[in-house]
């Protein structure tokens, strides 16, 4: 079991209803994709946020990563929609 700080932005944050939470992750959550699948079991607000999970972007410790990235050692994992700055 490891504890990570999860942060959400834009419509991911709005659908989940919070911008940040600390979560204990079971040992079988190895990658970002596993994390998203795990979150989807936590309730309909998470299901709504990750309905189209292939569009979701992720960052570990504030650097962009793929869904296949292992999350071991992550302090902070962010999940958010494609960016629209500039």
């Amino acid at each position: 079991m490891s504890t990570v700080n999860l942060v959400y932005f834009s419509w991911v944050r709005e659908r989940i209803g919070k911008g940040e939470e600390m979560l204990d992750l079971p040992a079988d959550v190895v990658t970002v994709a596993d994390l998203i699948a795990h979150l989807k079991t936590r309730g309909e607000e998470y299901e709504a946020a990750f309905e189209h999970q292939n569009v979701i972007r992720a960052a570990i410790n504030q650097e962009h990563v793929d869904h296949a990235e292992p999350i071991a050692g992550a302090r902070e994992i962010a999940l958010f929609p494609p960016m629209t700055g500039g």
């Binding site: 932005f9 962010a78 929609p81 629209t84 700055g85 500039g86």
Partner: peptide, 9 residues
Amino acid sequence: LKTSAPFWK
């Protein structure tokens, strides 16, 4: 910046 800086409008 438009595609990888984390901003949302």
